[in-house]
Amino acid sequence: MLEARLAQAAVLKKTLDAIKELVTDANFDCSDGGISLQAMDNSHVALVSLLLRADGFEPYRCDRNLALGINLNSLSKVLRSAQNEDIITLKAADDPDNLSLTFESQNQDRISEYEMKLMDIDQEHLGIPETAYAAVITMPAAEFQRICRDLSGISESVTIDASKDGVKFASAGDIGNGSVTLKQTHNPEEPALSTSIELSESVTLTFSLKYLVNFTKATPLAGAVTLQMSNDVPLLVEYKMEGGYLRYYLAPKIQD
């Protein structure tokens, strides 16, 4: 059986908000290491990979591996009943038909109990090799969100060009063109406000802004975001949170 108690419902609520528009149904794979999810969007252009490590829960117990097939929209509706500060407990039997969710207020004067039906999801699982990316850019998550939103007003696509001069986000569309260039900065008092660029070779890739804007729904989960790129492979956008991560992979647009 699975029993996982999370001190703050907000983590799960924000995580769901960050993936539910990209993915409709997904298996939550539970093992003794924690709860993970991997799913592609309908068009197979983007992939979401979530890990909530066992040590992020207190307590966490999972006797055998379980795949909980969940409709994310349904889970999101159930989680709406949880306050951000609630303690949330997930429970499932071995070979479960239902997931049980309990929300307790901090001072335990309110206990809400929900049961959600599970579904059978036959999902392919992709093996993503460990990659040493040519460019690793860490920047404030809010800055990345703003850049994606601003450039999506100009074009459907953005070309990200990482070089020793900085990282340039450029878009060209019917109304004109625009770009934002970030230089490396260092803010020792607030590391989350720094931008760092590690580069082994220059990288230029073009991506759909629709997906990037969607990824930035994860902004409330982390102060910083990391973009990892190599020529001719998908972009990795990572939000690290306490006790896990949310990663998005985005296939590039390719010159025919």
Binding site: H44, V45, E124, L126, G127, S208, V233, A251, P252, K253
Partner: peptide, 14 residues
């Protein structure tokens, strides 16, 4: 001409 690739073109089924 630019075309959108898919994730499966890069990563194989596990």
């Amino acid at each position: 001409n630019v075309s959108q690739s898919t994730i499966e073109e890069f990563y194989k089924e596990h």
